[in-house]
Write a protein that binds this DNA or RNA. Sequence first.
DNA 1: CAAGCTGAAAGTGTCGACAATCGACGCCTA
DNA 2: TAGGCGTCGATTGTCGACACTTTCAGCTTG
Lengths: 230, 230
Amino acid sequence: MRAMSQPVGLPMLAESDLVRQVARRLTDAIVQGRLAPGAKVAEAAVARELGISRAPVREAARLLESQGLLKASPRRGFFVRELSAQDVDELYDLRLCVERHAAVEAARRLTPAIRDGLRRQLALMRDLARHDDPALIVEADYEFHRLICAASGNGRLLRLFDGLASELRIVIGLIGRLYDDPEEIAGTHEPVLEAIEAGHPERIVAHVDYHLGVARREVGRLVRSLTPAS
Amino acid sequence: MRAMSQPVGLPMLAESDLVRQVARRLTDAIVQGRLAPGAKVAEAAVARELGISRAPVREAARLLESQGLLKASPRRGFFVRELSAQDVDELYDLRLCVERHAAVEAARRLTPAIRDGLRRQLALMRDLARHDDPALIVEADYEFHRLICAASGNGRLLRLFDGLASELRIVIGLIGRLYDDPEEIAGTHEPVLEAIEAGHPERIVAHVDYHLGVARREVGRLVRSLTPAS
DNA sequence: CAAGCTGAAAGTGTCGACAATCGACGCCTA
DNA sequence: TAGGCGTCGATTGTCGACACTTTCAGCTTG
């Protein structure tokens, strides 16, 4: 007999239905760069490959469309979203709004468990930076920011962050690496956590701004290198 | 001969496919209060009523789920989302983040056309406040805020605002009226527009904060009156 | 009389199929 | 030879059907 369902607030990866499984697989393929921006996602092909009908694939595609990973072109199908430099700017503007608030709020509601979680994640990131596995660093980076958003106590904010991060990972996944100097980026994370632990709203905002500013420039450079003329 | 297709950044409401039509109808029914929170939205029933198959209804329901209007319960169907006081708090926290940024950005990029649009909308709101048609006032209020978000030039921000507003209108639609004193709310809008026209970021933020604070209290009171014990 | 069980009805999750539509290839014409 | 047009293939949008699950009403039983 299986364990009883635990009513924890976790995202519930039950994955019992096909739709979420397909959505997960497509998302992975996109953020890992296996499905390049602009690539067509044909329902029938995906369905054949997974050995299922088109209906779940179709619903999963619409789900990903609402998250901004796919773009639906009526009567033509779904395509992996292509991000312009302006798209990246929009995404980082929103990240700034959201993560400023999340960090300040996280500081207000900081518990020992959350603080330890953030410290562990930061240590992990530093560790990965030394061993230099670009894809894993991106993951750890993402998870650190996600923990802060989760610590804000605002579930919608967390979902919003997930959406923004997914979109950004369309371009990041293309290369597999984001930062030239992984140690540097770990270095800009540290003051953010320190400011949160200190609980100074102004310093929190300043450090979040600085860190996201660096990241924005890196990703912007990445996008411009992909689309030389646009 | 018709004009050539204009490559403007408009949302392109083609509305040719059934999915969007169904989504639109369901959304209207919810924000107008005809579908109460917690009500079941049975695919088969909706499909029968509209004389179509279940497939488009299903996709529309999933679309609305991603917008937070419906909640999917596996193997049980879709239900109109119920909003708690905490949900309202979350939504207004996000509105604050987003609309602060939108208003400041709108001031930076203010053009005469946009300024006139905002003024017209404000005048319309004042006019409606005198004639006291609660539902229309809510619409006009929503549209004023939406114009500011659109003026920010950030399409994702606008979509995000639309999502937040939709969710809030689940509860607002229940009563059909939001403010006891419509003139007062028009009064708190005016300084926001003035601050945007003046272009002082601090004043903009202050007035947006004040206005949304008033609105948050009103909606919060509304929600608590609906769910006495929770 | 209340609580648990049983059966049927309703509804969801998934499937395969058909018509409408879009894109591309090849053909005809100037 | 270049450009426009018609036809073909492939894919989407929509539909009806079937199996399984959930729900609820009525019955049985302690």
